Amino acid sequence: MSNTRIQQYLTGIRSGLPVIPSFLPVGIAYAIIAQQAGFTPFETVLMSATVLAGSSQIMAAGMVLQGAGLAAVIFATFVLNLRHLIMSTCVIRNFRDAPLRLRLLASFGVADESFAVFSMAREEDRTLWDFLGLMTDVYFAWVFAAVLGVFSSTLLPQLLLDSTGIALYAIFIAILLPNLRRGGGLVRLVLLTALCSTLLSRFIAPSWSLIVSSLLCAALGVSFVDEAALEGKEAADAP
């Protein structure tokens, strides 16, 4: 590896250091929920090492805990992770000239945190080796958090272990709230999805009602969520 690539890789590692602490509480919560769902310690850590998607892992473990079928778990996590197609495209287009094997490796490391840090980096720092350095932080922090969660589950009091059940809801609330103030259309869409899921759960399994309502309301939301208004709001909020 040339000195330039080493420097870029180290720059990427340094840029990812501030986000490492954010992985710990989520990773620990995931590991505890996974073990409550019947995952072995090895399976719990293996999922983090091969999936690298906090919200999807918590959703999958939570659905297994609630008795959802395998098909529902797979489809729900697929829908939740569709955003990774867009994020990966935005990141990988910076590496058009890189070998395919390295682009595939980089695409595996595209998570919400790595995407956010990389997108805010200076243009000259948006190189393949910068991203691989950033990805190193994200990957090992997430796997370490799962390992820590496995050991924590034997040390934490039962009351605290039981409270991890709200972790998934807390994550989605944290994602939603900053976006809801951008426009009334998004608020209506969220409320419509919640109402639709509640009604459907009376006729089909809750896991499938969530999936169907998410897809159906996302399609309906195209007609009344004003993208131009959202962009204008973002521009107005920008410093």
Results as ranks from 00 to 15, higher is better:
Q66C: 07
G67F: 15
G67S: 08
G67Q: 08
G67E: 14
G67D: 10
G67T: 14
A68I: 02
A68C: 02
G69Y: 13
L70P: 06
A71P: 01
A71N: 09
V73H: 08
V73F: 06
I74K: 05
I74F: 15
I74C: 13
F75A: 05
A76M: 05
T77S: 11
F78P: 08
V79K: 00
L80P: 02
L80D: 02
L82Y: 07
L82N: 09
L82V: 11
R83I: 07
R83E: 12
H84A: 11
H84F: 14
H84W: 11
L85Y: 09
M87S: 06
S88P: 10
S88T: 14
T89Y: 13
C90F: 11
V91R: 01
I92D: 07
I92G: 02
R93Q: 14
N94Q: 15
N94K: 13
F95R: 12
R96F: 14
D97R: 13
P99M: 04
L100W: 07
L100M: 15
R101C: 13
R101N: 07
R101Q: 10
L102W: 15
L102F: 14
R103P: 02
L104N: 00
L104Q: 11
L104H: 03
L105V: 08
A106W: 00
A106C: 00
A106H: 00
S107R: 01
S107I: 04
S107W: 04
F108H: 12
G109C: 07
G109K: 03
G109V: 09
A111M: 05
A111N: 03
